[in-house]
C-alpha cells in the first residue's frame, strides 16, 4: 500500500500540472521583455519597475490593504462572538434566524450580496467609499470566521472552562484566560481567511465602492478586460509569491507545533 500504482501517479501528476502550470506560465511571462505578451524577447524586470512607478496601482494597493485589515479585524471580533453564541449561547428567541443569517452569506452569489448592500447604502444615503467596502466585507467574512471558530469551539473540552469557573474566575476571565488561548489558532485562521477574502473580492467591492475608493481587484479587472497586460503579470507574480511564502510558513509552523506537542506528550508519559 506504500507505493503508488501507475494510475495514481498519472492522475496526481496531471492534476497538479493542471493546477500549477497556468500560474507558472504567468510568472514566467512576467519577466518577458516584450510588450507583446506572447512573444518571448528575453529576461527583463522592466514590468516590475513600471508597476512600482504606477501611482494608480500603488493607491489601489493601499486602499485594498486598509480595507482588508479593518474588515478582517472587525469580522474576527464579530465572527468569534457569533460562534460563541451559536455553540454556547443556549436557546434564545430567533436562534434559527441567526444561524440562517450566519450560513446564508457563505452560499450567496456575490452579485446578489453586492447589489443588496449597494441598495441599502443608497437607501440610507451613505456615501460609497472605503467605509462601505469595509462594512460589506465585514458582513460576509464574519460568517466564514464564525464557521471556522465554531467548529473549534464544538470540539472544545467544556470541563476546562468549568474548572476555571470553580477556581473563582468570572465568566469573562475564564474566556480570556482559558477559552481564548485554546481557540486562538482557529481565531487566527479565521482572521487570515477574512483577510484573504477581502483582498480577493472584486464583485462586492465593485458594487459598494465609489469613485473615491478603487481597490486592487477592481483595478486589475478593468485592466485585463481589454486583454493580457505585462504589468498585471508582474503584479500577479508578486501576489503569488506572497501567498506561497505565507502558506509554506504557516504549514511549517503548525508542523513544528505538532512535533513539539508530541514530544511534550511523550515526555509527560515517560515523566
Amino acid at each position: 500500500m506504500n507505493r503508488l500504482s501507475w494510475f495514481n501517479t498519472v492522475s496526481l501528476t496531471l492534476g497538479f500540472a493542471f493546477l500549477y502550470i497556468p500560474m507558472i506560465i504567468l510568472v514566467v511571462y512576467s519577466f518577458n521583455a516584450s510588450k507583446l505578451v506572447t512573444v518571448w524577447a528575453g529576461f527583463s524586470t522592466r514590468w516590475y519597475g513600471e508597476l512600482l512607478r504606477d501611482r494608480a496601482f500603488l493607491n489601489a494597493a493601499w486602499v485594498t490593504l486598509k480595507v482588508a485589515v479593518a474588515s478582517s479585524t472587525l469580522a474576527t471580533v464579530l465572527g468569534t462572538m457569533a460562534a460563541y453564541v451559536m455553540v454556547r449561547g443556549g436557546r434564545f428567541r430567533g436562534r434559527t434566524l441567526f444561524s440562517g443569517m450566519i450560513y446564508a452569506p457563505l452560499v450567496m452569489p456575490e452579485v446578489i450580496t453586492g447589489l443588496s448592500l449597494l441598495l441599502l447604502f443608497i437607501g440610507i444615503g451613505l456615501d460609497r467609499g472605503v467605509l462601505t467596502i469595509v462594512l460589506a466585507h465585514t458582513t460576509f467574512s464574519m460568517c466564514y470566521v464564525s464557521v471556522v471558530v465554531s467548529s473549534r469551539l464544538a470540539t472544545f473540552d467544556l470541563s476546562l472552562e468549568e474548572a476555571a469557573l470553580d477556581l473563582g474566575c468570572s465568566r469573562a476571565e475564564a474566556f480570556r484566560l482559558v477559552t481564548l488561548p485554546i481557540i486562538a489558532p482557529a481565531v487566527i485562521s479565521g482572521w487570515l481567511l477574512a483577510f484573504t477574502l477581502s483582498l480577493d473580492d472584486l464583485v462586492i467591492a465593485s458594487f459598494t465602492s465609489g469613485p473615491s475608493a478603487t481597490t486592487l481587484p477592481i483595478k486589475i479587472f478593468s485592466a485585463v478586460r481589454l486583454g493580457v497586460s505585462p504589468e498585471i503579470n508582474a503584479l500577479s507574480t508578486i501576489m503569488i509569491a506572497i501567498v506561497t511564502v505565507g502558506v509554506i510558513a504557516a504549514s511549517l509552523i503548525s508542523k513544528r507545533n505538532l512535533v513539539r506537542q508530541r514530544r511534550d506528550e511523550l515526555a509527560a508519559v515517560r515523566g
Partner: peptide
C-alpha cells in the same frame, strides 16, 4: 489562497 481573479486571468494568456 491565491487570488481568484488572477487564477482566472492566467487562462487568458494561455
Amino acid at each position: 489562497w491565491t487570488s481568484f481573479l488572477i487564477r482566472v486571468y492566467s487562462w487568458m494568456g494561455i
